[in-house]
Design a protein around this nucleic acid. Structure first.
Length: 159
DNA sequence: ATTTACAATATGA
DNA sequence: TCATATTGTAAAT
């Protein structure tokens, strides 16, 4: 189930499964085109929430409500990471090391980076708010431009 | 089954 | 500043 989300930054694409939002693609970044045979009844309701939340985040605000997220594709470790990322508020950042500590794997900082890269729902799961230590920028799968733009919009200054 | 390469970090030289 | 050990995954051998 694929639905478009028009925003000031372009058209995002949300993918829904029976459980909820399963993937979110950046504007013009069509990676996978699976057949949308499924059409969950709740999808349109979820989509409203997703659209709202996405726009709030793009505006640098904190989303009031999120749609259900289908994280069943990831390993347990990855889901822990993503869950930890969801707790980061707009305007705040965390280092990979801090995320690692938050999920009780204080030495898995590198693995955290891997989990962020595997994150199927960028922006809503704020992988862009995770910086390397000392406030340096790390990397970003869909382009560092997005990372910088989003952070600036939230009023975060990079050193 | 083993080795590499990653969006990392702390430590020791 | 540079080398290295550590950790979870995926991809290559």
């Amino acid at each position: 189930m694929k639905l478009a989300i028009p925003t000031v930054d372009g058209e995002f694409t949300a993918h829904y499964s029976e459980r909820g939002l399963a993937q979110l693609d950046f504007a013009g970044d069509q990676r996978s085109h699976s057949s949308d045979t499924l059409a969950p009844a709740r999808a349109s309701e979820w989509h409203k929430t997703t659209t709202l939340a996405l726009k709030e985040i793009l505006a640098g605000k904190n989303p009031a409500k999120l749609p259900p997220l289908d994280l069943s594709c990831g390993t347990e470790f990855q889901r822990r990471v993503w869950n930890a990322l969801l707790k980061i508020r707009a305007g705040k950042t965390q280092s990979y090391g801090q995320v690692a500590e938050a999920i009780n794997h204080p030495r898995s900082t590198r693995a955290v980076g891997g989990a962020c890269g595997a994150n199927p729902i960028p922006v809503i799961v704020p992988c862009h708010r995770v910086l390397a230590a000392k406030g340096r920028l790390g990397g970003f799968s869909s382009g560092l431009d997005w990372k910088v733009k989003l952070l600036n919009r939230e009023g975060i200054q990079l050193c």
